[in-house]
Design a binder for these strands. Structure first.
Length: 345
DNA sequence: AATCCCGACAACCGCGTCCTG
DNA sequence: GCAGGACGCGGTTGTCGGGAT
């Protein structure tokens, strides 16, 4: 029984490029690997591992283009991909999904991650819900490879003092309170994100920068792999799917020009605002952090985000959104994280 | 030029949670 | 209420490329 229930429709301009090297995958025969009956998700036999090839990406994207994301269990069977459902979902959510911004993290994003990590700990999915253009995997990797070191370095400089403005006293909070608020926020953000990314009702995601196949997003990747460059083709494929490919055409070839970075950052912020439904990114963050304050009342959890929240910025928020990053406040941030029993390292 | 080392990132694995019958 | 499947999340690993020696 052939497993070709959908027709692979490729854009005319779609061309295959050199697949990534695959050391970890044996030479599978795609045919004759069909297993009748129910197929376990990660059946070790006949499941391909390792890097995805452009061909596989195309198949996956085409399938999702047709059926939408979800029902991952059925994806390998219906596409004939020799991948487990998990792998398919991961590939989609972390790499192929439209709206993903690739490339260097902006300063704002960096600050948000630091801030949110201090609040949430290593709950990358929750953190990612506030950065809709970034995946949890991306954020996690960025944290592990960049931010951990950065913060460690800041601590190592000796400027870190736990006696400064005591974050502990400032942020003496009820964990229960802010966690509850956090759950609400995260739920809202996820819902908004889900709505925004849904092909059926993606009008709200127009601010999103579409997936940029150059592997650069709005800024350039330091080390674009051969395969990464090939994703341009996938982007082209996706282009037709995106309802509002506003900035796709002109978003390539942008380097790390600070001016452009600022512009891009602004765009990102707008995207975040749009998706999260917050008036401003600052208010979004402030809204989270407000719940950390002792004054945070439970009643406000049900209310809309405080549009005047910016006026209630704490020292932390001031640091996070101050144009010039003050190192002294950096240390306070670390202080907060430590006081919150969140392990940075 | 060859080798080693390390950073960056994609992908996998295992576990927890949610959902459905 | 329970069991099993599906899905999501976070930690970890594997691979690749670039720089240093």
């Amino acid at each position: 029984m052939p497993h070709t229930p959908f027709v692979l429709k490729l854009a005319p301009h779609f061309s295959l490029t050199k697949p990534s090297t695959q050391k970890s995958t044996a030479g599978f025969k795609r045919k004759n690997q069909l297993i009748m009956g129910r197929q376990p998700c990660c059946d070790k036999v006949g499941v391909k591992k390792g890097p995805w090839t452009p061909e596989e990406d195309i198949i996956l994207v085409s399938y999702i283009q047709e059926h939408g994301p979800g029902n991952w269990r059925a994806v390998p069977t219906k596409t004939g991909l020799l991948r487990c459902s998990k792998s398919c979902r991961l590939r989609w959510t972390n790499y192929l999904r439209p709206g993903i911004k690739r490339g260097n993290f902006t300063e704002n994003e960096e600050k948000m991650i630091i801030h949110l990590q201090a609040l949430l700990g290593n709950r990358w999915a929750a953190i990612a819900s506030y950065l809709p253009q970034r995946t949890d995997n991306d954020i996690k990797n960025y944290w592990n490879t960049h931010l951990k070191k950065k913060l460690k370095k800041l601590q190592g400089n000796g400027g870190y003092s736990r006696d400064g403005v005591s974050a502990k006293s400032t942020y003496q909070i009820s964990r229960g309170q802010w966690e509850r608020k956090l759950q609400t926020d995260i739920h809202m953000a996820k819902k908004a994100l889900s709505d925004a990314l849904s092909p059926e009702k993606s009008s709200g995601s127009a601010e999103f920068e579409p997936f940029n196949g150059t592997g650069t997003g709005t800024t350039s990747y330091a080390k674009p792999s051969g395969y990464a460059s090939s994703t341009e083709n996938i982007a082209k494929l996706l282009k037709g799917w995106m309802r509002n490919p506003l900035k796709m055409a002109d978003s390539s070839e942008e380097g790390t020009d600070p001016i452009k970075e600022d512009k891009n950052s602004k765009e990102m912020d707008e995207g975040v605002q749009s998706v999260l439904g917050f008036e401003s990114l600052d208010s979004a963050i402030s809204d989270i952090s407000q719940s950390m304050s002792p004054e945070a009342s439970l009643s406000q959890y049900e209310s809309k985000p405080n549009l005047n929240a910016q006026t209630q910025l704490s020292l932390l928020e001031e640091w996070l959104f101050d144009e010039g990053v003050n190192q002294g406040k950096d240390y306070q941030l670390c202080d907060l994280a430590l006081d919150e029993n969140v392990n940075f390292f």
